[in-house]
């Protein structure tokens, strides 16, 4: 039996709070990655991509199947297979993202706002059912051989215990976000994306291939969601065809909270929601975490109707 910890001891409480912070940040950085996809599509089209959660879910499945295939082909070194699986998942999901744009958005570009919105919801249902019927309606387990060693490896940073699993999540998220900021702020492609976001007509008059750039934004967002999916699959241990629903909803909320259309805002929103949820679970009750997360959202929207960082319109992509 475990020896019950003494809740009065301040040092212990401090280290537990740090642990909660780490857990919350891990959860939040995943929300942030998914939220980036929502925010980019909104920035460029002014629409919400409701199939984004499903792209995330496809990323989960792709990563697991890639790992399974590599495992049966004899490749077992986690240091090689895991990054490879994440990259494969990103590529596949990017493909699905582009397809989603082609089918649900491009044809309806001039239509009423509700048309692409509805077609995206339709896409979401189609993709979910496609995976359910063609893969499995049951759950799929993330390969234990990959997740277990990562979960059991822990590093102590002062009073905090960080598992390799969490380290992978932080490192990957951080690298991808830096990459995205660099791409959007420092490259010609990024400038083109921002130009399309600011004024689509003007951008096309200047000779930019608007359709291609929009498809590229979808691909980019989808690849980020797939990376998040691969990591969530690893972190939770199980995945199912409807796994994208909840996270999609939370990430969407995060994007709104941070100011939809704003890239740093999506990251900030994701981290705030992840931290709020875990702090609520720990200090109050898990039952309340939805309530506090959304209460914060409402409060922020009262004070800043365009979200926390929503005013800097020039940055939106």
């Amino acid at each position: 039996m475990q020896t019950p910890p003494n809740p009065d001891s301040g040092a212990l409480l401090f280290s537990q709070m740090l642990e909660i912070l780490i857990n919350g940040l891990a959860r939040g950085s995943v929300y942030a990655l998914v939220a980036l996809g929502y925010t980019m599509v909104y920035g460029i089209l002014g629409m919400i991509n409701f199939a984004h959660g499903e792209i995330f879910m496809i990323g989960m499945f792709a990563a697991v199947f890639a790992l399974g295939a590599m495992g049966s082909a004899g490749l077992v070194a986690v240091g090689i297979t895991l990054p490879l699986a994440i990259l494969l998942a990103m590529a596949l999901s990017a493909g699905f993202g582009v397809m989603n744009e082609r089918i649900a958005y491009r044809k309806l570009r001039g239509a009423h706002l509700l048309a692409p919105l509805t077609s995206a919801i339709g896409m979401s249902i189609v993709l979910q059912n496609f995976v359910m019927l063609s893969v499995t309606k049951g759950k799929v387990d993330f390969p234990r051989a990959v997740a277990q060693p990562l979960a059991n490896t822990t590093w102590s940073l002062g009073p905090v215990q960080l598992t390799a699993l969490q380290a992978v999540i932080f490192a990957t998220t951080f690298a991808l976000m830096c990459g995205l900021f660099w791409l959007v702020q420092r490259t010609r492609l990024g400038i083109a994306l921002r130009a399309v976001a600011q004024d689509r007509t003007m951008a096309s008059l200047c000779g930019m291939k608007v359709d291609r750039l929009i498809a590229f934004a979808f691909a980019l967002g989808s690849a980020l969601a797939a990376a998040a999916g691969a990591m969530v699959a690893m972190y939770q241990g199980v995945l199912r065809f409807d796994s994208g629903y909840m996270i999609g909803l939370k990430a969407f909320t995060a994007a709104i909270l941070g100011g939809i259309g704003n890239i740093p805002g999506a990251v900030l929103g994701g981290l705030i929601i992840g931290l709020t949820e875990d702090l609520t679970s720990y200090t109050i009750k898990s039952e309340w975490k939805q309530t506090t997360a959304f209460a914060i959202l409402i409060l922020v929207l009262w004070l800043r109707p365009r979200g926390l960082l929503g005013e800097r319109v020039a940055d939106k992509v």
Binding site: P5, Q16, G24, Y282, K285, S286, E287
Partner: peptide
Amino acid sequence: FDGLASEEMDFRATISAIQK
């Protein structure tokens, strides 16, 4: 005594509360 939505798959914060 606590509840989690039936879609929730990340239990880590609740587990910390259980340990506490």
